[in-house]
Structures are given as structure tokens and as C-alpha cells.
Write a protein that binds this DNA or RNA. Structure first.
Lengths: 339, 339
DNA sequence: ATGAAAGCGCTAACAG
DNA sequence: CTGTTAGCGCTTTCAT
């Protein structure tokens, strides 16, 4: 492996000069620089990022703490799209990405801060973490710049990217109300997710503004899981045949709801309207196609990365980024036929 | 930031002892070790991986060279599933993952080997690279242990994971032949992909064994792209109305073919049978559902990682891993009705 | 414009 | 069982 020492020897200069020449410092004779560069090329030199980082205390690396890269959640390309956005943007701004491979067993042994300190990442992006995750507190306490996705926490070194979940849920609920529905149920995620709390708030607000009383029995947690949502829906619809529409806090759960409807012999949307949240790829391919609140996940990833870069470079204006959502009106929601 | 120096001072021992105590060496008094560990905890110490790597020349890091993490290819969760497999397995064997964020512009400036040398990754997994990619030759030349996905190259430091693409394509073509089809077209990827070459070979072999003459006009490249496949299919079917079945080299392209059929007013499978390759999530959700050759992408990722680990630890038996494929018979392929 | 020297945090002989 | 010493490859004062 070629080092600057080798180059220095070959060029008959000191390592200092080599370092400065290669790093584009101005106080170096252009002739010497050219010579050094030539030799570097010839010797097939590439700098050792480890050694450099050790002294500069910068790694040009972003740590990624991503839950949901499990086999089970492959259907849900939410995480992947965010990843793509992060990847593209980080390439643009010159940061490499490091995945902390931490399975559940190890998570107990090694703290968030430890992970970051060991690898000396410049900053971190966190996605898919639950609000009761012990890591979360650590993030806030730690000095390491960090961007959270879908967790609204701000501090000196912490920012976040999210969508207006309350508004999104409110809008789509209103859309159902406009379609004539009154008995609208909600399959939510779970209360350890901020987005669930917010989406419920939006649902509630829409009902309230339309003077529809909130029925607590209509609101069920589906754990963001297709199967769980399926089971919950069967039970719900058996007990409450008056329900004509279901708002889901994720597309995946909406798929579960649609399956349940099929099981019960209900056709969508004539017997039951269903809406999702996220706009995953499947949403536009299932039959009937799924009406949903679209989040631009790719953009979220990009913005998260850009925000982190700002945090790192210390010229942050705003630590909060809200990405717009959009209702995709497709086939799964229709007029209430039971009026 | 706490260093072993701090601990050493506090414990009244040398840094060497601290290092050995913390790394579990046996030649350390258990009492001293306990004391050192206590102090380390108290001081909230975590080792600096950079410094360690600099001297040990090992980083416990796997580099990932993945094409297809672009916005355009989000539909195609092939890459993502492989990633999940890699991620899970690398967590298990204690390696972190680093993404080389290299966009097209940078790729020209920095070589594969440079990337690896700079970051001092222990090994590399490469996916989605084309056979004419200059990186490929570098991989082979380089001494860095490397596992390729879907590129059959072996050397001292290089292994690969793939499926039997020829067999898969042969099987599914035979399946169509068994259904009574004779005029079977193929929408292939492109010839810079090994899998395309192999899948074509399988298609060809199946035809030949059934004494069906290969028609070169029936074989078109679809660039692994939905749109391109769509256009190609329109043209193909307009010129060759006798075609009753199309074998595609990817599911994404099969989606394009299905759209084209729709455009042409052909119904699937009664007018046209279509098969895919990969078994992406969409395959079982589109309507009609897609008959395809399923590859266990997650498993491929896992196996790639395990193989790399073996390469790294120097106890490699076999540098080649072939993952089984399976034909998923769904709705898009049916009996030839034009016999 | 260049070099000498110190040091980033750690491990690894070697000696004792 | 423990400490001394050297050094991984690089950047960074501080001289010159």
C-alpha cells in the first residue's frame, strides 16, 4: 500500500509537502505539486481515510439507524424509498453511509451513542424507531448531530423531517365524509409511533368538524401490520355492520382490511370504502386500487440528508422540515351507498 | 471523549494494560481488569474504531457497491430484498455495512479499488453492476475479497452468488410449451448482464429440445425496463400476431408487456400468456397475477454475506453459491387457445 | 515554499 | 502479570 511517505521519498520532499500538495493547499510550488501528483498516480496512491479521520476528527460518514430492514417488511418499501433518497443526496454532498448492523440482541449491549462514537460518524439519520425506544433519549442527550424521520424532536443538534400527518389524516377523512360516510372506523398503527397519534388527531378533528361523534369502538390499533389489521377488521365489521368506511394509518394495513372485506364478502368500494396512508407501490397495483395519502418518501430521505448536512456545517436555519402529502383518489373509496 | 489514556491514568496502569484488559486478553489480573472495566464504564468510554483499524488493518466493515438505488427503480424491490438479507447476516457476523455513495460523475474519478482502499473495507459485495463496467475488471485484479451477485466470476479473492438462470428460463419456457404454446417470444434484458445471456440460453434450449425453431425476431431486449418493454411489445405483437406467449427476463418488464397487451386489447392469459422473472412483490398483486421464476433475493443477500465472511476468514470451501429458483404458477400464463 | 516534530487513539512486540 | 517503546498514515503547528 502506497503512503504519502513513499511519495515523499520518491519526490525528494517531506511528507508535509506531499500532504499539502495533494490536498490542494496554495502554499506549494506548482511544479512540486505536479511532480507529487504524478508520482502519486504512478504509485497508485489513495489516501487512508482512517488515518485522516483520526487526526481531523471528521469521517465524512453518516450513520444510518434504520429499523424495518427485516425480511418481514419487504412488502413495505417505505424504508427503501427513504433509503434511496438518502443515498442519492449523500452521494451529492460527498458523504458515505454506514449501516449500523445491530440486531435486537446487540442493541441491548451497545448504546446508540457508543455506536456513533466508535465509528466516529459525523452525523446520524434515524428512521423507524419507536417513541419508547431507549435510543431516542440518547439521541437527544448526545451531542451528535442527528436527523429523525417522523419523530418531531428538535434541539441544538437534532432536527427532523416529517409530513403533516394530522392534516393528511384529516383530509382523507373529510374526503370520506364528503362521499357521504358517517360511520367511519380507523385502523391505526400503535401509540408508540408519533405518526399514529397525529393521524388519529386528524381523523378525530375531521369527524368533529363534521359534527360526527367519535366512536371509540371504531378505533383500533393494527400495529402497522397487514395480518393484525386483517384480524382486527374481521372483528370490527362483525360487531359493527353499520360501518361504511375505514381509514387506515398505513397502506399495508389497508391491504389487510381489503382482504378482510373479501373474506366477509363485502365489495369495495360499494359496501365498504377503504383508504390507506403512505402510497406504497402496491397501492396502485392492487385491485381495486387504493385511495391513500401519498408521502414522498424519496424526498423525505433527500431532505433528511440535506438537513443533516446543514446541521453538520453549522449553518442551520430551520431544524424542521415538513414534506407535503397528497391524496391519491383511486378506486377503493366511493360514495356511501347505504344512505 | 474518553480514551484509554484517561482510563490508564485513572486506574494507575499503563495504556497497554487497559487495552489488553478491555480486549479480553488472558494475561491480565482479573482484579485489574475489573477495576479498568469499572472505570471505563464510569467514564463512558467507547473505543475509537478508527484508531484500532489503523493499527490492526481491519475495519470489520463490508463495502457495498449497489447500483439500482435510484428513484426510478423503486418499483423493483429486488435490490432492497438483497440488501435486507445482507443487512441481517452482517449484523449476525458482526460487520458493519458501508455504502459507497458514488454517483455517475464521481464514478469516473474514483476507481473501485480506490474506494475500497480509502475506506479500508475488509471486503465488498457488488450487485447490479454491468458486465462492461470498468469496475468489474478492477475487482478481479484487486486483492480485496469480494462477492459478486449474479456475475459468475471466481478467483482467489472473488466469489459469487447467483441462481441457475439458464435452468430457470428453460423451466418456465417449457412450462409454456407444455401449455401448448409454440410461438413464444422473449423480452430479454440486455447483453451486458450475465443473467440475460443465461436466460436466453435457457429459453433457447427449451425451444430446441421441443423442436421449435428459434425465431430471432421473437427475441428483443427490453433493457430490464418497464417502458422499454412496453414499447418493444407493441411493436413485436403488431408485427407478429402469431405470438401467443412471451417470456420476460424480469417481472418489471412483464408488467410492461401486460400493459402493452391491454393497450392492444389482448386479454391475458386467453390471448397472450406472459411470464416474468424475479418474483417481485408486485407479481402477486397485479391483475392477473404474474407467473414467474421466483428468486429468493433475501437468501441471496444472506449467502453473499456469509460467503464473504468465509473469504475474509480464509476458510473458504466453495466460492460459488447457487440459490434455487422456483416457478410460481399464477394467472398470467394459460393454455394456448389458438391451437 | 518547505521541513521537522508532535500527535490523533490504539495495538503489538518485547522486556522485565 | 505489567510497562516501555514503536508505529499505523495522516494533518498541523511552528520554524525556517
Amino acid at each position: 500500500m502506497t503512503t504519502i511517505k513513499d511519495i515523499a521519498r520518491e519526490a525528494g520532499v517531506s511528507v508535509t509537502t506531499v500532504s499539502r500538495a495533494l490536498n490542494g493547499y496554495s502554499d506549494v510550488n506548482e511544479k512540486t505539486r505536479a511532480k507529487i501528483k504524478d508520482i502519486a498516480n504512478e504509485l497508485n496512491y489513495s489516501p487512508n481515510a482512517l488515518a485522516r479521520s483520526l487526526v481531523t476528527n471528521k469521517t465524512k460518514t453518516i450513520g444510518l439507524l434504520v429499523s424495518g430492514m427485516k425480511k418481514e417488511s419487504i412488502k413495505d418499501n417505505f424504508t427503501y424509498e427513504i433509503l434511496c433518497g438518502i443515498n442519492d443526496m449523500s452521494a451529492e454532498i460527498g458523504y458515505d453511509l454506514i449501516f449500523f448492523s445491530t440486531n435486537s440482541t446487540m442493541q441491548k449491549e451497545k448504546s446508540y451513542a457508543q455506536l456513533c462514537r466508535e465509528r466516529k460518524v459525523d452525523g446520524v439519520i434515524i428512521q423507524g424507531i419507536k417513541t419508547d425506544d431507549p435510543y431516542l433519549q440518547e439521541v437527544i442527550d448526545s451531542e451528535i448531530p442527528c436527523v429523525l424521520i417522523d419523530i418531531p424532536i428538535e434541539s441544538n443538534s437534532v432536527g427532523y423531517v416529517t409530513t403533516d400527518n394530522e392534516l393528511g389524516a384529516k383530509n382523507i377523512t373529510e374526503y370520506l365524509i364528503d362521499l357521504g360516510h358517517k360511520n367511519i372506523a380507523m385502523i391505526n398503527g400503535h401509540n408508540r409511533a408519533f405518526v399514529s397519534q397525529q393521524r388519529f388527531a386528524g381523523y378525530r378533528k375531521a369527524l368533529s368538524e363534521a359534527n360526527i361523534a367519535l366512536q371509540w369502538e371504531y378505533v383500533i390499533d393494527g400495529a402497522f401490520d397487514e395480518e393484525v389489521a386483517y384480524d382486527a377488521t374481521l372483528k370490527l365489521l362483525n360487531e359493527h355492520t353499520e360501518i361504511t368506511a375505514i381509514v387506515c394509518a398505513s397502506d399495508l394495513m389497508a391491504l389487510g382490511v381489503m382482504k378482510a372485506a373479501k373474506t366477509l364478502g363485502l365489495s369495495i368500494p360499494s359496501d365498504l370504502s377503504v383508504t390507506g396512508y403512505d402510497d406504497i407501490i402496491l397501492a396502485s397495483y392492487v385491485s381495486p386500487t387504493l385511495t391513500t395519502v401519498a408521502q414522498d418518501k424519496y424526498l423525505m430521505g433527500q431532505k433528511a440528508t440535506r438537513l443533516l448536512a446543514e446541521l453538520l456545517e453549522g449553518h442551520t436555519n430551520e431544524r424542521k422540515v415538513i414534506v407535503e402529502t397528497e391524496i391519491k383518489k383511486r378506486e377503493s373509496a366511493g360514495k356511501n351507498t347505504r344512505i
